[in-house]
Simulated assay, not measured.
Amino acid sequence: MKKIIITLVFVLGSISLQAQELYWETNVNKAIEVSKKTKKPLLLFFTGSDWCGWCIRLQKEVLKTPEFATWAKDNVVLVELDYPRAKAQTNEIKQQNAQLQQIFGIQGYPTVFFSNVQESAGKINFQALGNTGYVAGGPKAWLAVADGILKKK
């Protein structure tokens, strides 16, 4: 009986964790389509996921918390733009990420850019709302900064 209860608790716990899991788009064109449909700005997370200590810390302390998940679902379309050293990426993703790094003038990681998307004469234009990086103080402090940036839109 104990094994059944323990198994049930484990399965239900796994399901609730998956329900909180956010989807991070890696293809910016797909994210732009979602942004247009939902009228939500993009949150572009520029990261070195497998080597950047501050990026890993931001993920752990903020981006993988229930508070962030709840906020993100209501406010933004998530886009991860990764610049790994050991993880494999397609050439298409590498080129896309390099181009976006230039467009937004990214000089260090982690950088989180908030941007609206405008289409004019078939061209995509990013309207930058603001940016941030790692903010000490956990999700509450980071979300206060993010909310301040989004209020400018």
Rank of each mutant, 00 (worst) to 15 (best):
L58V: 02
F104T: 11
K3I: 10
N97W: 03
K60I: 01
S49I: 04
F46D: 01
F113P: 01
F114L: 09
G13A: 14
Q99L: 13
T70M: 10
I124A: 14
I6P: 01
V9I: 12
A146R: 00
F46I: 03
Q99V: 12
V117Q: 08
T38Y: 02
S16N: 09
E33R: 03
D50G: 04
K87P: 05
G13T: 07
G130I: 09
F45N: 00
K94L: 02
N131K: 12
K37Y: 15
R85K: 13
T38E: 12
T26L: 06
F45G: 00
A69D: 06
E119V: 13
L12P: 02
N75V: 14
F68W: 07
G48F: 00
L81Q: 02
I6S: 10
P66K: 14
L12E: 03
W142Q: 04
A98F: 12
V9P: 05
L81P: 01
V112L: 05
W51N: 02
L43P: 01
G13I: 04
K64M: 07
Q59F: 04
L42F: 11
I149M: 08
L58E: 00
G53N: 04
G53F: 03
K140H: 11
D147H: 11
D50Q: 00
I149Q: 00
M1R: 14
P66I: 06
Q99W: 13
K123L: 15
L22F: 15
P84R: 06
V112A: 06
S115I: 07
R85V: 08
V9H: 06
Q102R: 13
K87C: 03
I32V: 07
T47I: 04
K37G: 11
P139D: 09
Y134C: 09
I15S: 10
L81R: 01
F46R: 01
G133S: 13
G138T: 06
I56M: 02
N29W: 08
G122S: 13
Q102E: 13
L8C: 07
A136Y: 12
L8N: 12
M1G: 11
G108Y: 10
F68V: 06
A144N: 11
E92Y: 10
F46S: 00
P84A: 12
T90Y: 06
V145M: 04
I149G: 01
V11P: 03
E61D: 02
I103E: 10
I106W: 05
A86E: 11
L44G: 03
L150S: 03
V9F: 06
V145R: 02
G108N: 15
